[in-house]
Design a protein around this nucleic acid. Sequence first.
DNA 1: ATGCTAACACAGGGCCGCTA
DNA 2: TAGCGGCCCTGTGTTAGCAT
Length: 310
Amino acid sequence: MENIHFPFIGFKKLIQINLRQLEYFVAAARHGSTARAALAINVSQPSISKAIADLEAQWGEKLFVRKHAVGLDLTAAGLARSREALSLLEAAQRLQEPRKQAVSGTLRLGFLSTLGALWIPQLLTQMQKRHPSIDIELVEGDIASLTRQVERGEIHAALQYDLGLARPLLTMHPVAALPPYALLPARHALSAAPSVSLAELAQSPLLLINLPQSREYFLSLFREAGVVPTVNYELASIELVRSMVANGHGVSVLTTRPVVDRTHDGKRLVCKRIKGRVAKQAVVLSVPRSNASALIAPFLTVAKSVIAPD
DNA sequence: ATGCTAACACAGGGCCGCTA
DNA sequence: TAGCGGCCCTGTGTTAGCAT
């Protein structure tokens, strides 16, 4: 035990207590016995007893009620002192830990347009809260342009969907795996069902997101289910797809889901789980394979907690 | 079984004197 | 004046014996 001396609180005269005595006192309080405390911290029982006696002499008050052949009970004064002692021991413990260097700098973050509206504001809020010394510059784009910019080092990282393509210059850190869901107008025949199959969904006209990669992902879900949907419209905007569905122009399948099941024009939507095993859409943070910024790790932790909190 | 006291051992630090 | 060695004091630990 380090022999650090310091004045104890509330005494006119300088009184010196050391950490060893406090440690033994707290151990005795915790275990309710000098013998058990001695066993726990690997010293002899008299050493515990001596430390307690020294503290009682210093403070001029009884810390324990001794019960022969039973153990020790904290007095009211002992209880208060044990709390003070514990907080001092914890403070001393913190002093021995190396000071953590706060990561700081500017993170140039790319993000896929379709992911931005749902998560970027929350990500910025959480980053400001947890890592105030990190500034974030935002770059919006599609997967192809984001990938290119990360590879060229123009941005530090990009939040995007996993293409499943080999990119030798990039590392894809998994952030979340989003399950697809069916999007129906409120008055659709399937809107009362707890879940719908892709085959049932394919009986209605489909409104398909036609963004690169996303379009292929959603079509692959139907292909895997062995059904061919009738695509009514192909649209680039998720919000437009939602509005079209809500107004009865078809049904859709999406992965990103706004908190509110209402469209811009106030119409109600119904979201349904898709029956059976369906491939989830992986959200990843793509970063350069070499020379990744030190700002990536804190952002990745925050991104996981926001996008995939479970 | 548990706690307390007494006696003793050991280690580390401070003080002092000697020497180069 | 700085370095070194010896002595002493203090703090911490142990064992042994006794009390409850």
